[in-house]
Amino acid sequence: MLRILRARIQQKHRTMKYPRGNFPEMPDRFAGRPVITGQCGESCRLCLDACPTHAVSKTPEGLRLDLGRCLFCRSCVGVCPSGCIAFTSNHQLAAAKREDLIIGPKSLERAAAVSEIARKFFRRSLKLRQVSAGGCNACEADANVLSTPAWDMGRFGISFVASPRHADGLLVTGPVTENMLLALRKTYEAVPEPRIVIASGACALSGGVFGGNPEVTGGAEPALPVDLFVPGCPRPTL
């Protein structure tokens, strides 16, 4: 018992101050929210060809980058001769509307978060059931991290629960494989209303790198109505 107490003192209090205090410092090589910084040559298609998930497109107004597809691999940055795309250290990527994930030359710093209804119902207590539907275990592992002392999301009244019947919503990861489609639907139906769906990671948003494979359906939509989209591969833990 004394050893356990001694260990407790040695390990210290480690829960981060965020969101009351400052952001924890992100590693300098971290790829956060991208910005379109320049105008490129009309005929140049290098970034479009380099992108593994067709996240980059070209419109008359300039480049568009779909965060729902982006793997944050920076292949586009590497090939661009005129430095038109840059990845900042801003980790705030989530959006309530799918179209807010499209980044253009004039996009806002941060998209609007959850809807008013969700805020009203679940503000102080949100119980989530996590469903991995073809996820590679990176998004899942970093969902588990949120319950550890450093993040301690229980502080905000958020926790993962064992049964969908105890949950207010689902946290979906993975590109939703054909083999998980039925189980995902059934899990959703078992959640009492009102309920929300959070799609987490490029796979759940668009199928990610698996997007074109016939074995996957291409993300949480259209199987379920999604209330919050969290980009990344895997999504950052903040």
Binding site: A50, G134, T177, G212, N213
Partner: peptide, 17 residues
């Protein structure tokens, strides 16, 4: 349940994916 068809998708590669 997690079958995403990776081996089949790798045929004909390597490519950017």
């Amino acid at each position: 349940y997690q079958h995403r068809g990776i081996e089949r998708a790798l045929q004909g590669g390597p490519d950017k994916r």
